[in-house]
Design a protein around this nucleic acid. Structure first.
Length: 133
DNA sequence: GCCAACGTTGGC
DNA sequence: GCCAACGTTGGC
């Protein structure tokens, strides 16, 4: 499975991940997103999308540790995964471009804008990679 | 800054 | 268990 992770640039950007090399992807407080986190397997790849400020897919991260309890949660049982910096896309792919691509109309980024952790099909993944080259 | 979409909460 | 009210997210 491939993934798309959303983050606000001002909150935690892909540059921050490059600097940190790896990070705990925590703070997710949405059940659907949590279920997606739980399905992540070590070694899987995720596109990183900057919402709000950038509205672009900018890079790829790799899952390095499968889900574990999110220690930043003060109540409820939430989970986090660990992931590491993989590489920057050659060119970022903007939300506008994605919306213009008929093959990507079912992408969760378009269909369900608010979900912060979403699965993506191989075909969609390949299409975005193609657009970034 | 506005608003649409969606999730969550709480009264019944 | 339904649904209205409210809060949050995120695009514009």
């Amino acid at each position: 499975m491939h993934w798309i992770l959303k983050t606000e640039k001002s909150c935690y950007s892909f540059s921050d991940l490059e600097k940190d090399k790896k990070t705990n992807w925590d703070g997710v407080r949405n059940y659907q997103a949590r279920n997606n986190l739980k399905s992540m397997k070590k070694g899987e790849l995720a596109l990183i999308y900057h919402s709000v400020n950038d509205k672009q897919v900018v890079g790829i991260a790799k899952i390095t540790k499968e889900y574990f309890p999110d220690l930043t949660a003060t109540e409820g049982e939430w989970v986090a995964v660990e992931l590491c910096f993989d590489h920057w896309l050659k060119n970022p792919v903007s939300l506008a471009e994605i919306k213009e691509n008929p093959k990507l109309q079912n992408l969760s980024l378009v269909r369900q804008g608010r979900l912060s952790v979403c699965p993506t099909s191989k075909a969609e993944w390949d299409e975005i990679i193609k657009m970034s080259n």
